[in-house]
């Protein structure tokens, strides 16, 4: 039900490596989990609205917005201090294209 192609595509999207010798096991794993959640298809959800957020509506919290006032900014050392690689004021990452 879950093809190897699907597994590989999902792995690419998630930027995870699945070594050759673990692929079949990973595929079966994913297949089992998908089969497990497939039971939801027994329910008729045709006219049901998805429930993305559980409390905002019920608590009367709509339009949680921020004023356009500067409140943050710039302890560069504290913030970039965790970067694995730096080049002065910049974070350094492997070369990208375009």
């Amino acid at each position: 039900m879950i093809s190897m192609e699907t597994l590989e595509r999902v792995g690419r999207l998630a930027e995870l490596e699945i070594p050759e010798n673990q692929r079949e096991a990973a595929r079966q794993d994913l297949e089992k989990m998908v089969a497990f959640v497939d039971v939801m298809k027994e329910l008729n959800v045709k006219d049901v609205e998805p429930l993305y957020q559980v409390t905002a509506e019920r608590a009367g919290m709509q339009n949680v917005l921020r004023d356009d006032v500067v409140t943050e900014g710039g302890d560069r050392e504290a913030l970039l201090g965790n970067a694995p690689k730096r080049r002065g004021e910049f974070a350094s990452v492997p070369k990208t294209f375009a």
Binding site: L16, V48, P50
Partner: peptide, 30 residues
């Protein structure tokens, strides 16, 4: 493992069937 399942559930062609369905089932549960 969970990242792979989650990525699958959001991916094109499966989003409606899995993630969206689960959100609807969530409302039925509520």
């Amino acid at each position: 493992r969970r990242i792979l399942l989650g990525t699958f559930a959001l991916s094109e062609g499966y989003y409606d069937e899995y993630y969206m369905t689960a959100m609807k089932v969530r409302r039925l549960i509520r």
